[in-house]
Design a protein around this nucleic acid. Structure first.
Length: 356
DNA sequence: GACCCGTGGGG
DNA sequence: TCCCCAAGGGT
């Protein structure tokens, strides 16, 4: 071990150094209490934490602003229509979060307030271990051990943890417990995330700017970017599908996807099955003179990549009345709240069908 | 524990 | 271009 290595990590020295740094370097984010104001609004903390699950701050901010303008309180959100909320969430991803968000808002509105303990929060739909701890600490001033991907990375480096994720999660939680202060654990958690986001980054960490450098075994060892060690991931399979553009009198047929599963509950273009090989016109919403475009759309999901063929047809204004779905004005598709893969396909359809 | 579930940014 | 990654939760 190099001469500059700390002989032992001193857990109690970490929080004061980090909180001092945070007091001078905290990011100004819309869900954080402004200096001099009261404690943050639990509704805004909860909403931001759900939006931030596996999603970066820059992606969340416009959605957070839109949601808090449309629904300023949890009671207002609880009174919203499912379709309005799902459409507002479109593009943010992980759509089960939106379904759970509404269920949670209705539960909280029925109770009259948010639970103010970690265990109580953990019972809410869409609130897991991380989110319950974060809300308890940030909104209610409870001492809680908050572990997200930032904390996993920072702690792995602080302790030069050789055990690989995800197996190391229990060990990381225990180590985080040893450095979490009794007071200001909410600020401590947010400070860890700001540090992970801006300094202790996954690649090329900025150790010379780090307030915890003197306490970091990873830095002392010379290769902090080696941590956290992760087990290898299997490759993503390639799948294929077809989307159908059925137009009638200036409108296009949209359907609602089943509540469970991929893109559950979202508006969508009709699709056939998603299979290992191109399913061609299988699953078309109607018998029609389908024309295959000579252009495809590709999209990556969490666990597979998708290539989509595009089939278009036009039917007469008096036809297709019995088809399930909505005939949506083509000129107003942006307001339909389509998930990104369908928005991509719709843009391609419109470009190719109008440009000929 | 394994698997499912989106999206956009950055190297 | 491609791969990695992110303020995780549900089943």
């Amino acid at each position: 071990m190099p001469d500059n290595a700390p002989r032992t990590i001193v857990p109690l020295a970490i929080a004061p150094a980090l909180l001092h740094w945070y007091d001078h370097n905290a990011r100004d984010l819309p869900w954080r209490a402004r200096p001099g104001s009261n404690a943050p609004d639990p509704y805004r903390v909860w909403l931001s934490e759900v939006m931030l699950q596996q999603t970066q701050v820059a992606s969340v901010i416009p959605y957070f602003d839109k949601f808090t303008r449309a629904w300023p309180t949890v009671e207002a959100l609880a009174a919203s229509e499912d379709a309005d909320l799902m459409a507002a969430w479109a593009g943010l991803g992980y759509y089960a979060r939106a379904r759970n968000l509404l269920a949670c808002a209705r539960e909280v509105a029925r109770r009259g307030e948010f639970p103010d303990t970690e265990a109580g929060l953990r019972e809410l739909p869409g609130v897991g271990g991380y989110t319950a701890a974060a809300i308890a600490a940030i909104a209610f001033g409870r001492r809680a051990v908050v572990v997200d991907a930032n904390v996993e990375r920072v702690v792995s480096r602080l302790f030069a943890l050789e055990e690989a994720l995800p197996g190391a999660k229990a060990r990381i939680y225990a180590l985080t417990d040893t450095i979490t202060p009794e007071l200001r654990s909410g600020d401590f958690a947010q400070a860890m995330m700001d540090l992970g986001s801006g300094i202790c980054t996954a690649r090329s960490p900025k150790c010379l700017l780090c307030p915890l450098r003197a306490h970091c075994a990873g830095f002392a060892g010379g290769t902090p970017e080696r941590f956290p060690i992760k087990s290898a991931k299997p490759p993503k399979p390639q799948r294929h599908g077809t989307m159908f553009w059925l137009e009638r009198d200036g409108r296009v047929l949209l359907v609602r996807r089943p509540d469970k599963g991929l893109l559950g509950g979202m508006r969508a273009l009709p699709t056939g099955p998603w299979a290992d090989s191109p399913p061609r016109l299988e699953g078309a919403p109607a018998a029609a003179g389908w024309q295959l475009l000579d252009e495809q759309v590709s999209h990556g999901f969490t666990h597979f990549n998708l290539d989509v063929a595009l089939a278009a047809a036009t039917i007469a204004a008096h036809a297709g009345a019995a088809l399930p779905g909505e005939w949506w004005p083509v000129a107003d598709l942006e307001s339909a709240g389509l998930p990104t893969v369908f928005a991509k396909a719709a843009r391609t359809f419109r470009r190719r069908l109008c440009a000929q």
